[in-house]
Amino acid sequence: MRERTDEALMKAYANGNMEAFRLLYERHRGPLYRYVLRRVGDAATANDLYQGSWEKIIKARGSYSASAPFQAWMYRIAHNHVIDYFRKSRPASELLPENMASEGPGPDAALTELKRSSDLHRAVDSLPFEQKDALLLKLEAGLDLQAIAEVTGVNPETAKSRLRYAVAKLKNILRE
């Protein structure tokens, strides 16, 4: 039997089918959670933002058009929710691209962090904000360049450039 598409499931949910939402949620819960978690770094904040993102998706169900790819639409909502969180929790100057590389843990926390997370996670955390965003959308959500561009609100060339820099940096870090 042919599996129903995300778009069809979302429309079915918008029309009152709860089972369709369960299927949709089951498909995307893990990737979306990991995307949010890797973006913010700590689980408590990630839980809040993840739940908030789903609430926004649920509330926006009436305005969803089945002609738009569901994944790009869903990650755009989550992406904007995360950006809003950063805007509220940090001064605007810190959101400039050159200042948006992750600060990394302090000296005491570094040892714990090193033990807890893998080198790859740390490498991703060290990436500038926008490169990290593009990379996580690729690695966790499996979005293509066009979808990454749509989610982040840039053209595909810019999205590709960010992704290329991020991958090159990760490769170098992994080599070391």
């Binding site: 949910y13 819960r29 993840y50």
Partner: peptide
């Protein structure tokens, strides 16, 4: 792979 806690899943489904 990190997964959302069960309580969080339940909260989202309840909201839906």
């Amino acid at each position: 792979k990190a997964e959302p806690p069960d309580l969080l899943d339940q909260a989202v489904l309840n909201t839906a």
